[in-house]
Design a protein around this nucleic acid. Structure first.
Length: 320
DNA sequence: CCAACAGGCCGTAAATTGTT
DNA sequence: AACAATTTACGGCCTGTTGG
């Protein structure tokens, strides 16, 4: 077990070291109800990749959706909102977000699965094909996304929602950001912390004008406001899985510098937020750190470079 | 009474890890 | 190398509780 354990011990959602996760994906299982066990089906070749058997492209018409909407418990809606915010979440992450008031982690997990299975049956959410072989042992977590009906329900008949096959990188990034989000929420347990607000994309975005007067957009993965007894701490968070080149990371730092010189944040909040970079690879964190120190354009005090594991504990220190 | 959980107990899958 | 134990994730089944 790693040291990064927000909540009831959330494992890293996807092993970052593995380069061939897609090939170990298993086709979604058939409904186990009529077989008596959850033995993998021998007919699995029939099922379409990317779809679970529960709601194979099931259509939900307006009337049905409105009936579902009215009868839906608040917690179900909360689950949908969390999935919407992060685009993809594992069962475990959803449990940590929305199933917290339970006697034990096991019962919370069971109830989470129960609720997710219901939302799946209602065709509001669907899960990605399940990967076999977990972080260390056991089977991997299910990964959920909104189905079109779920998206319609949240956006009350807004634009159409199209799910596309996510790239592995994108998926890993979404799940890593969600882990960081959960880590932030975990800070509520600190005595000095009074309230935590975490904005996901696109609420975390900031508009500003560049040096040439052109419109620019800063897109942090997360933007958080943490109110403690004495201070209000504001952070921009960037999660790096080692997929972006070093110059790209530094360029992004440059964007933060430009945005800082616009003075927008300082005007409304007195101070500029800390920019927290979270890396999965510790040596990479060091490399970026030294690059920032060497760069004449960048102000090192603005940044914190952390690893995924170290973030939760270091964040506590910053709030002291 | 019923629906909707809550939670305990047991069973299964699969990869890792330790032991022979 | 072969085997067993362990770990993680998940499902089924059962009984109990609570509000409508």
């Amino acid at each position: 077990m790693t040291s990064y354990t927000p909540g009831q011990g959330i494992p890293p959602a996807i092993p970052s070291g593995s380069s061939d996760i897609a090939s170990s994906m298993q086709v979604g299982r058939e409904s186990a109800r009529d077989r008596g066990t959850n033995t993998p089906s021998t007919r699995s070749t029939e099922s379409t990749r990317g779809l679970q058997p529960g709601n194979q492209r099931r259509r939900v018409d307006r009337d049905e959706l409105s009936r579902i909407n009215e009868a839906m418990p608040e917690r179900d809606r909360e689950v949908l909102r969390h999935i919407d915010e992060h685009r993809y979440l594992t069962t475990h992450q959803i449990q940590s977000f929305a199933f917290t008031a339970h006697g034990s982690a096991e019962s919370a997990a069971r109830t989470a699965r129960y609720v997710l299975a219901r939302l799946d049956r209602l065709a509001l959410i669907r899960s990605l094909p399940r990967r076999v072989g977990g972080v260390r042992a056991g089977s991997a977590a299910r990964i959920w996304q909104l189905a079109p009906a779920g998206a319609r329900l949240l956006r009350d008949e807004g634009q159409t929602y199209r799910t596309h096959e996510p790239s592995l990188r994108f998926l890993q990034h979404c799940l890593a950001v969600a882990d960081v989000h959960l880590g932030l929420r975990q800070l509520t347990s600190l005595e000095s912390v009074e309230a935590i607000d975490v904005a996901t994309e696109p609420h975390s975005w900031r508009r500003y004008t560049g040096p040439g007067g052109e419109r620019r957009l800063l897109q942090p993965d997360l933007a958080s406001i943490i109110r403690t007894r004495d201070f209000v701490d504001r952070w921009f968070l960037e999660v790096d899985l080692g997929t972006e080149s070093l110059p790209t990371v530094l360029k992004k730092c440059g964007q933060y510098e430009t945005y800082r010189s616009s003075g927008i944040e300082q005007d409304t909040h007195h101070a500029f937020p800390l920019v927290v970079w979270i890396f999965t690879n510790p040596t990479r964190a060091e490399k970026v750190k030294s690059s920032i120190l060497r760069s004449p354009r960048l102000t090192p005090e603005l940044y914190r470079l952390e690893t995924m594991d170290g973030f939760a504990t270091r964040a506590q220190e910053w709030l002291q």
